[in-house]
């Protein structure tokens, strides 16, 4: 298989407090890989390690077989090859949506201002924000901010897109629309996607594979296709999480079958 990202025995910690130990996984080119788990299990922390915002002390992260530490020293790898959609969009408030999307293009390419404008128009049109180019982030809704953030993350046609809770805070219709958009873009541009989420509907709708981080054992206890994990995982925490939540008892086999057939019904 063609691994885009490989993580080997990664330990995650905040100072002396260990969040997760010995995390190892591979993300294949062109798949949607989900990092799932209960609140506080270290999903967003793992994302920070993958993005180079936290330095991996113990363990290694490889992008296309190259050690991430070398890529960090080679400065603009993270700007050019990686796009990130943050939970709230993280748009720069002093810039219009068009300026937000244009900035990476102006920084990393030699394109003319006309070509940049055409690309900005395209990216905003792809996320359904045509005609909103001159709006400031404060003037648009939360869902639009996320889509504008996605347009900015895609500005340079990154090879890998990271999403931090893409559907969090969105109504079910907007969340579904964003999930569809993620799949359209993945199929269209062949981007590898890594997303942190605990939205069940999104997990089943977009996930090629999911990795469950267990807050109790402080390690990744399951990796696989979400539907397969739900149907056949022996880890009761994984099944409970994918069924409904950790406080609710695991579903009966009949309920599981219903969920597999129609995941949004259980959202």
């Amino acid at each position: 298989m063609d691994s885009k990202i490989s993580v080997k025995n990664l330990d995650m910690a905040y100072g002396g407090y260990v969040v997760m130990e010995g995390i190892s996984f591979d993300v294949q080119r062109g798949e949607v890989f989900l990092i799932i788990g209960r609140s506080g299990c270290g999903k967003s922390t793992l994302l920070k390690y993958l993005l180079g915002l936290k330095h991996a002390g113990n363990g290694k992260i490889f992008y296309d077989g190259v050690d991430a530490n070398e890529l960090i020293n080679g400065d603009d790898f993270y700007g050019r090859k990686i796009g990130v959609l943050y939970q709230g969009g993280a748009l720069w408030s002093s810039m219009t949506l068009a300026e937000n999307v244009a900035l990476p293009l102006e920084t990393y390419t030699d394109l003319s201002s006309r070509e940049i404008k055409e690309l900005v128009d395209l990216k905003l049109a792809l996320v359904g924000l045509k005609n909103f180019e001159d709006f400031y982030p404060a003037q648009i809704s939360g869902g639009m901010k996320k889509r504008a953030g996605l347009a900015r993350a895609m500005a340079l046609d990154p090879e890998i897109l990271f999403f931090d809770e893409p559907s969090a805070g969105l109504d079910p219709v907007s969340a579904r629309r964003l999930d569809d958009l993620i799949l359209e873009l993945k199929d269209g541009l062949g981007i590898t996607i890594i997303a942190v989420t605990h939205e069940l509907a999104s997990i089943f709708a977009i996930g090629t594979r999911a990795m469950y981080l267990d807050v109790e054992t402080k390690t990744a206890t399951a990796i696989g296709a979400p539907k397969e994990l739900l149907a056949s995982s022996r880890d009761k925490n994984v099944v409970a999480f994918l069924s409904r939540g950790t406080k609710t008892p695991a579903l009966t086999s009949e309920e599981r079958r219903m969920l597999l057939n129609n995941p949004t019904e259980f959202d």
Binding site: L122, G128, E184
Partner: peptide, 14 residues
């Protein structure tokens, strides 16, 4: 597919 998406996507939000 992306050309189609760019052409058909409309600004739906208020």
């Amino acid at each position: 597919k992306l050309v189609d998406l760019a052409e058909t996507s409309k600004a739906a939000d208020v």
